[in-house]
């Protein structure tokens, strides 16, 4: 074993870093996906970190941690916001919805079904953030135009889909929320036939 590796036995003297962070932890009550959650976290932790690392809600992803991609979007106060730039202690008591909270019990949200059905989630990494942004759009505008969808999702980068299947999935979900029998178009599923 090289000299530069330290053996650690139990909680010895050299666990100062751990005690330092425990010393500075704050206790918070968060309302995540309709549940009251109690967490103890460092004051400088972001909501993204607490969701993923403390609450193990790893459905919320990260792409830059600087507000430049939209991957970590969650709903706070019903609005899509970037969890990488939210201080957890500023979120106390405010309703937080993550991708894990979109389904109603065992039933996925119509957006989740439409995204899966149309391949609007390819790698699926930007998907949780986009679903949250889309959910907020449909809450405000049940029948959005293509332009409204474009704008509402303009803060979410996706590298796989070229966004088009995402637009179509939002449109399909919107139609299904009024008419459960609504189906995607032939061209959506098969491309154009001459």
């Amino acid at each position: 074993m090289p000299q530069n590796v330290k053996r650690r036995r139990g909680r010895g003297r050299d666990s100062a870093a751990a005690s330092h962070s425990s010393r500075s932890k704050v206790h918070l009550r968060l309302r995540v996906n309709g549940e009251e959650q109690e967490v103890a976290c460092a004051p400088h932790s972001t909501l993204l970190e607490v969701l993923r690392e403390d609450l193990r809600l790893t459905g919320t992803k990260h792409g830059c941690e600087l507000g430049e991609c939209g991957t970590c979007t969650v709903l706070l106060d019903g609005r899509p916001q970037l969890s990488c730039l939210l201080l957890t202690l500023e979120c106390e008591g405010r309703p937080i919805v993550t991708v894990e909270g979109l389904a109603e019990g065992p039933r996925p949200h119509p957006l989740q079904i439409a995204f899966a059905e149309l391949g609007a989630a390819q790698c699926g990494y930007c998907t949780p953030g986009i679903l949250c942004a889309a959910r907020s759009l449909l809450d405000a505008r049940p029948s959005p135009t293509r332009q409204e969808i474009r704008e509402a999702l303009s803060g979410n980068l996706c590298r796989c889909t070229g966004y088009l299947k995402i637009f179509e999935a939002v449109e399909l979900a919107a139609r299904r929320m009024k008419d459960p029998a609504a189906q995607p178009s032939e061209e959506t599923l098969h491309g154009r036939r001459l």
């Binding site: 899509p80 916001q81 303009s154």
Partner: peptide, 9 residues
């Protein structure tokens, strides 16, 4: 400014 999501914050 930036994006609709950022403008929510």
């Amino acid at each position: 400014i930036s994006t609709p999501i950022l403008r929510n914050m």
